[in-house]
């Protein structure tokens, strides 16, 4: 028969091991920080083109289009963002498409994630496969097959906003499902049971407990869907018809020459989303994590 000794009791209570003693010496310091140093170098590398775009947004090119070299400084580009023909129109269209597609994909994908995490039914494995396949298919195949279908059913004359939304929802949906699923899978189902125990019916439980707790995952999924959609070129190029989204506009400039205002837009996109993310992070920090 086993008699727990005080030492064993103490061992079971104190599961956290003490911190290792601090090491000394320059070699130690370097080896401890080497990874961090390399990591920061990689980060710096990813910012090189951003710096370049930022610099070129203040460039006054001598010719009609921006070149690789910085010639002279000007604020002019920032004051005349919409001057290049079609630039701001393409931005507006991109926003319209991405927002519509993001809403649709987030709603549909969240429902799917709930079904897959919270319910059992036949065909779960098949469903998972169907959701996985679009992510495993190169975009060029997604775009081309969708275009082939639009042509075959004779709606190729209608290519534009509707077909773009259809395409964007199609290729962002799986990413939404995966993101929301990860959040739901980590959620304690006993919280919902506790709500039911405390007189909340199914709908109240969903509205007051499940949805608020799943929200960070849903928001992350929506942000992912938006950025995938807004930045998409390949699928869009196949399904856009005569419509010009911002990425298509940039691509088109390759032939016409790059207006320096493009770099202003690029800088703005970076700055606005950066501020947005920082603000979200600060807001999140104000509240305790859960």
């Amino acid at each position: 028969m086993c008699t727990p000794t005080p030492a064993r009791i103490a061992a079971t209570i104190d599961t956290k091991s003490p911190k290792p003693p601090s090491r000394k010496g320059f070699g130690r310091w370097v080896s401890d920080h080497l990874v961090l140093f390399v990591g920061i170098l990689v980060l710096v590398y990813t910012f090189v083109p951003i710096g370049y775009i930022f610099a070129l947004s203040f460039n006054q090119p001598s010719g009609r289009s921006a070149t690789a070299e910085f010639e002279s400084f000007t604020w002019n580009n920032w004051e005349t963002i919409c001057e290049p023909d079609g630039l701001c129109g393409s931005l507006k269209l991109s926003f319209q498409i991405s927002i519509t597609a993001t809403i649709l994909a987030t709603v549909l994908g969240t429902l799917m994630a709930f079904a897959l995490v919270r319910h059992t039914f036949r065909g779960r494995a098949t469903s998972n496969l169907v959701i996985f396949l679009p992510m495993a298919t190169p975009e060029v195949v997604l775009g081309s097959s969708l275009l082939a279908m639009f042509v075959a059913v004779g709606v190729d004359g209608l290519l534009g906003f509707i077909t773009l939304v259809i395409a964007h929802v199609m290729f962002t949906l799986s990413f939404v499902v995966v993101t929301v699923k990860a959040r739901l899978a980590g959620m304690d189902s006993r919280l919902e049971q506790a709500a039911m125990d405390l007189y909340a019916n199914e709908w109240q439980t969903f509205r007051l407990i499940t949805l608020p707790l799943a929200m960070p995952g849903i928001v992350a999924a929506a942000m992912l869907a938006f950025s995938l959609s807004f930045d998409d070129f390949i699928v869009t190029n196949f399904t856009s018809g005569q419509s010009v989204t911002f990425p298509l506009f940039v691509y088109g400039s390759k032939l016409k020459g790059f207006a320096p205002q493009l770099f202003v837009v690029g800088t703005l996109m970076f700055l606005i989303s950066f501020v947005f993310v920082i603000a979200a992070e600060l807001w999140r920090r104000r509240r305790p994590t859960y």
Binding site: P49, A68, F258
Partner: peptide, 25 residues
């Protein structure tokens, strides 16, 4: 969290613009 934001931050701006600036660089 700051580093995580920095990982994705460069990708907020357009894929094509970034590729074009690599072309220049």
């Amino acid at each position: 969290n700051v580093m995580l934001v920095l990982v994705i931050a460069p990708f907020f701006t357009s894929f094509l613009l970034r590729t074009l600036s690599w072309r220049a660089i």
